[in-house]
């Protein structure tokens, strides 16, 4: 297993966000984490990235324990997140944002160079000198993913990449993810757009109230109308 999460508990501001979540991802897998708003999906990603410290449990990447490691050390190991709301650096150019992403390499060999990122997202090449704050939401999302790629990811954590994007842009972003997956990238995808997430991933976990309520292959889950109706609500079309 590339990523092994075992019985993780976490809370913030006195609210219990994760209540014993276990999740495993093999190298080269694309796994979706779906569930309603407030289920604890983002908290789990932030536990992996070291931004939230779990109260109990274990998170291992290639056997190395991540819990209680500082966030910068985790990103330098190649556990890289494209955070919710993109979080691009607004007053820096597209190129500079990508170069900031390369900081996470910290001596490791890169997996993607600027050319690779520009081939994946040609619009970023066109806008390379433009300030990131002036990009559209979709372009910012592409930049956030590109920035993570520049850091040489062993595993890519994506938090709501489709949030607030027009359907045609969502399709572009997911097409890029499909290409990354084809090239062997390990991806953990957090999504509210359940249909899209299930369509593109190998396996999926459904979490609610901080617990895994069901899991399985994405194609099976995608055909389970009960699950879609019950857990996804208006999840996507």
């Amino acid at each position: 297993m590339l990523l092994s999460i075992d019985d993780i508990h976490a809370s913030y501001s006195g609210i219990r966000a994760l209540d014993g979540v276990s999740l495993h991802i093999a190298k080269g897998e694309m796994v979706a984490l779906i569930g309603p708003n407030g289920a604890g999906k983002s908290t789990l990603l932030n536990c992996i990235s070291g931004i939230v410290t779990p109260t109990a449990g274990s998170i291992k990447v290639e056997g190395v324990e991540l819990v209680r490691k500082p966030a910068r050390a985790i990103s330098r190991m190649g556990v890289l997140q494209s955070p919710e709301g993109r979080q691009v650096l607004p007053d820096m150019s597209v190129l500079e944002n990508l170069m900031v992403g390369a900081n996470a390499l910290h001596g490791r060999a890169p997996t993607h160079d600027l050319g690779d990122v520009y081939r994946l997202f040609p619009i970023l090449d066109e806008r390379r000198e433009q300030m990131a704050g002036s990009l559209s939401g979709g372009q910012q999302q592409m930049l956030a993913i590109g920035r993570a790629l520049m850091g040489g990811p062993n595993i890519l954590l994506l938090d709501e990449p489709s949030l607030g994007l027009a359907p045609v842009i969502v399709q572009q972003v997911f097409d890029a993810l499909a290409r990354l997956r084809q090239d062997g990238m390990t991806i953990l995808l957090v999504e509210q757009n359940a249909r899209k997430a299930l369509q593109f991933s190998d396996r999926a976990y459904v979490i609610e109230h901080g617990r895994v309520v069901t899991q399985g292959s994405s194609s099976e889950l995608a055909h389970n109308d009960d699950i879609l109706a019950h857990y996804m609500g208006t999840g996507g079309h």
Binding site: M92, E96, M99, V100
Partner: peptide, 23 residues
Amino acid sequence: TAFGRQVRAVAQNERAALLSGIR
């Protein structure tokens, strides 16, 4: 410089900087 870029990254979004391995 690359150092200056890190400084500006922290200035603009400390969490994003942290996620890029900046201390």
